[in-house]
Amino acid sequence: MIAFWCLAPIMVVAALGILVVRKAVHAALLLAVVMISLAVLYASLEAPFLFAVQIIVYTGAILMLFLFVLMLVGVDASDSLTETIKGHRIAALIVGALFGLTIGLAAGQVGYGTATGLATANKAGNVPALADLLFSDWVLAFETTSALLITAAVGAMVLAHRERLEPKAGQRELAARRVREYAETGRHLGPLPAPGVYARHNAVDTPALLPDGTPSELSLNRTLVGRHDDQAPPKDVKAIERLVSDSKGEA
């Protein structure tokens, strides 16, 4: 009972928080709090196996998959609050109120008796007793559920599957293609030259110098060049030094 009165407020606050918070990852975290609290409640109700499974399956696997997707959304993103379906906010409010009423009425009717038969059920140990039930009385339901899950998994794979039109290029093919390109267009075989990072100017947008003293445009990252569209990359060492001394003067 102590566990329940400690955990119930936490769970309710966390559950309300899921509705209120803006960022999806925060909501997922609060959901994890609810699930772990639920697991601890199972443990205090002498269902240790359910406790472990609840954490492994729900918190460890399912919610982690949620997070995996949510993380791709990024830190700054928050939910858009524009209404996409007309009037669905009002409809949601009405349905929510009705649901709350039903739950309230139902919960009001429940009588709290003491649990009986727990000792008999757990007599052979919690895990063996559970296994005994699952694989004797409920074996049909168990197998049906597993068949359903497998069907869903296979269905997901079929939907996401894409036939490859040509064989995947391996390391050998890629190397051969590079050599062929060199033969046809004269494109350099090796990797691009590194940027010219000097001791007194350590920015990666400084071009490297070729042996004849001209800067190599290939050594600059194309993204970085695009960032300074207004100014052309420096043409020689003098220009680079001028740039460096200018930026020093500004600092």
Binding site: I56, T59, G60, M64, L67, M71, V75
Partner: peptide
């Protein structure tokens, strides 16, 4: 010790992953 102690280890380890995942996300 518990009747499902090894599962307990697995469960707790799966919570530990959250630290790494959330740390990676929260760093921005």
């Amino acid at each position: 010790d518990m009747p499902m102690a090894v599962l307990f280890v697995m469960a707790i380890a799966s919570i530990g992953i959250y630290g790494i995942v959330l740390g990676g996300w929260a760093s921005g």
